[in-house]
């Protein structure tokens, strides 16, 4: 039952707390690209890979009381933070899925900004292209972010570290 929900609950159980929906979106996508079997379907959007399915599923988990969403007012926008609840832990105990250990990757992802994760996820989205074309594509689809060469190099190293 609800195997995709259970997989996400395992993520929240490992992550403990996730700050921001944008970060959540990018984290799950990057983990997918690291062969963690989350099944949410992603498409490329204005701010990089985005999954409507993930948005809905997280909303369902909140409404079921398995995760708690806290709306935090920032200077000119809202940020939504997530944490697993006791009911969520109970659900996970009953329906734990067979997943590889991805706690190390989650730790690495949590320490990074959402801007950086947007870059990493965008590079991974185009990973079927030759390396030099990936950089061109990032500049084409994200001209306003003005990612520097240093950031791109850092992202490349980060991807290597995540996958190995």
């Amino acid at each position: 039952m609800l195997s995709n929900h259970a997989k996400l609950m395992q993520f929240f159980s490992v992550a403990k707390e996730v700050t921001g929906r944008k970060k959540l979106q990018k984290m799950i996508y990057i983990l997918q690209k690291c062969e963690v079997p989350f099944e949410e379907k992603y498409q490329f959007h204005f701010y990089g890979p985005y999954s409507e399915e993930l948005t809905l599923r997280v909303e369902e988990l909140c409404n079921l009381g398995f995760i708690e969403e806290v709306k935090e007012e920032k200077s000119n926008y809202y940020q939504y933070n997530y944490a697993i609840t006791d009911d969520g832990k109970g659900f996970l105990n009953q329906f734990r899925m067979d997943m590889p250990d991805f706690s190390e990757q989650v730790g690495l992802l949590q320490g990074r900004s959402s801007r950086f994760l947007e870059l990493v996820s965008t590079m991974l989205y185009f990973d079927y292209l030759p390396a030099e074309q990936v950089v061109d594509k990032v500049h084409t689809v994200k001209p306003k972010q003005k990612y520097s060469e240093q950031e791109i190099q850092e992202a490349n190293e980060f991807i290597h570290k995540l996958k190995h």
């Binding site: 944008k22 959007h45 204005f46 701010y47 985005y50 409507e52 948005t55 000119n76 809202y78 939504y80």
Partner: peptide, 12 residues
Amino acid sequence: DFYRPGEEEERL
């Protein structure tokens, strides 16, 4: 889906 404004830079 139905319309949700979402968080800043989540989607347009």
